[in-house]
């Protein structure tokens, strides 16, 4: 079953690379650099799903106290931080030639930066709490509060003046059908990649827990 998921993900990743680099037409104003858009969206998509899972899993963990929800929140946050970092990097590479800067404190970039910091702090707090349940619960509270910033990332570009474009939804200009196809296939393949990473990461986390339990019983 997992092997099947691996193969499907690999194939879809290859297809989406083809779709982004070759199939999708070249944007008139920005040129070929605009193709980074597909990966930029793919990474921010994964980060968004990851942080939503952190939020929901943290709430459930606080309610029922079952360890698996804590593990889900922690592992998902780790992948989220990785992908939001990739979002910032791909965004910078795109912004340099098009806007003329690697970075500017526009509302969407600022809220994204805050998001990045918040979840890095969460990972630090969570990693520090180890197997202490009480501390794990405090980090869950932090994760829930940190989530407030996520909608702000999306809203800020829409209600405040900035330089980041609003392409989708009300006020957005939209993209061509072929570009949309390339984007959709990218989002699907990135979602599968995320699921795969999450499954593997949870497995590692559980193994880590078992090892620590063994060490603990050895010593006592």
């Amino acid at each position: 079953m997992k092997l099947f998921l691996y193969i499907i993900t690999l194939i879809l990743m290859l297809i989406s690379t083809y779709a982004a680099l070759i199939y999708a037409p070249t944007e008139t104003i920005m040129g070929n650099i605009q193709r980074i858009f597909y990966f930029h969206m793919g990474t921010v998509w994964v980060a968004t799903i990851a942080f939503m899972i952190v939020f929901v899993a943290s709430i459930i963990y606080l309610i029922n106290g079952k360890k698996k929800w804590d593990v889900l929140a922690y592992t998902s946050a780790e992948i989220g931080v990785l992908f939001i970092t990739l979002t910032i990097i791909t965004g910078s590479i795109w912004a340099k030639p098009v806007w003329g800067t690697w970075w500017t404190w526009d509302p969407q970039l600022t809220t994204t930066f805050i998001l990045w910091i918040l979840y890095i702090v969460y990972l630090l707090i969570r990693a520090n709490s180890g197997f202490d349940e009480k501390k794990a619960k405090y980090s869950a509270v932090f994760a829930i509060i940190a989530f407030i910033d996520l909608p702000l990332v999306y809203i800020s570009a829409r209600v405040m003046r900035g330089i980041s474009p609003v392409v989708f939804g009300p006020g957005g200009g939209g993209i061509e059908p072929k570009m949309l196809n390339a984007l959709l296939i990218t989002l699907v393949s990135f979602t599968l990649l995320f699921i795969l990473l999450l499954i593997e990461r949870i497995k590692i986390e559980n193994l880590k827990y078992q090892i620590n339990k063994l060490i603990y019983t050895e010593n006592n």
């Binding site: 003329g100 330089i163 392409v167 200009g173 072929k178």
Partner: peptide
């Protein structure tokens, strides 16, 4: 400092 806003509509030559 001079920055350019990118288009919110993506169109191709095609």
């Amino acid at each position: 400092i001079l920055l350019a806003k990118c288009p919110t509509k993506y169109e191709s030559d095609e």
